[in-house]
């Protein structure tokens, strides 16, 4: 295991130990955007129904988040997926009570039902030791899709780097490998969620993956 992988694994354990559901080396669904680590704090009230109903097909449902009835054809256009696939996904989503389907003027239309985002908090963490500038840009570009972003370094930072992170509202965590300690040197700013769709996509994926892992428990 390389140094970067080791820090990332330790950081995942650090966030996981705080109750977050964590994915490392995460690609934001529907994009090529790569994130080192995403940590999501779930909401019990919203997580539980997903265990019974199945997780929401977020890639499709996000296009219904905005409003009222959306014509089926428009949903297909927005997702960019195959018509049959979207049709099957929406039919299953209707069976699972995520959406309602209606025939209006001889065309199918859909409306989201009872959908609430199942997370209290979404934190991004980046290893600052590689591609720092690129990751800083990613954090800036995704602002509004997460609450906090941290940059993790196994060494102390110069003023310039610290200022760059501070300027984008990020926090700094120093990893002391010898002691296994993650030290929050600079707190992160808390951002409001403005891009509900992308936020929903990120948190649903992380929660789904983590709940899947939990099904391996024996007791």
């Amino acid at each position: 295991m390389g140094q970067e992988e080791l820090i990332l694994a330790a950081a995942a354990a650090y966030f996981s130990g705080k109750g977050y559901y964590v994915n490392t080396n995460f690609t934001v669904p529907g994009t090529q955007i790569a994130l080192d680590l995403v940590a999501v704090l779930p909401k019990m009230r919203e997580l539980k129904p997903r265990l019974k109903m199945g997780f929401a097909p977020t890639g499709i449902l996000v296009h219904l988040l905005d409003g009222d009835w959306i014509p089926f054809e428009r949903i297909v256009d927005k997702t960019g997926f195959d018509t049959n696939f979207v049709g099957e996904a929406l039919t299953e989503a209707a069976q699972n009570d995520w959406v309602e389907i209606d025939i209006h003027k001889e065309a199918a239309r859909c409306r989201i039902k009872n959908y609430k985002i199942p997370a209290r908090e979404c934190v991004l963490a980046f290893l600052g030791t590689q591609n720092f500038t690129e990751k800083l840009d990613t954090a800036r570009a995704l602002e509004g899709c997460y609450h906090k972003a941290f940059f993790i370094f196994p060494y102390s930072l110069d003023d310039r780097t610290t200022d760059q992170i501070a300027l984008m509202g990020g926090g700094i965590i120093k990893y002391h490998q010898t002691h296994g300690v993650f030290q929050e040197l600079m707190p992160a700013q808390t951002f409001d969620i403005e891009s509900i769709k992308r936020y929903a996509l990120i948190v649903e994926k992380v929660l789904y993956d983590n709940v899947w892992v939990m099904t391996e428990e024996i007791i």
Binding site: L51, T215, E217, I218, I219
Partner: peptide
């Protein structure tokens, strides 16, 4: 059902 999910239930 695993205990975790029973607890959540």
């Amino acid at each position: 059902t695993k205990l975790r999910f029973l607890i959540w239930d």
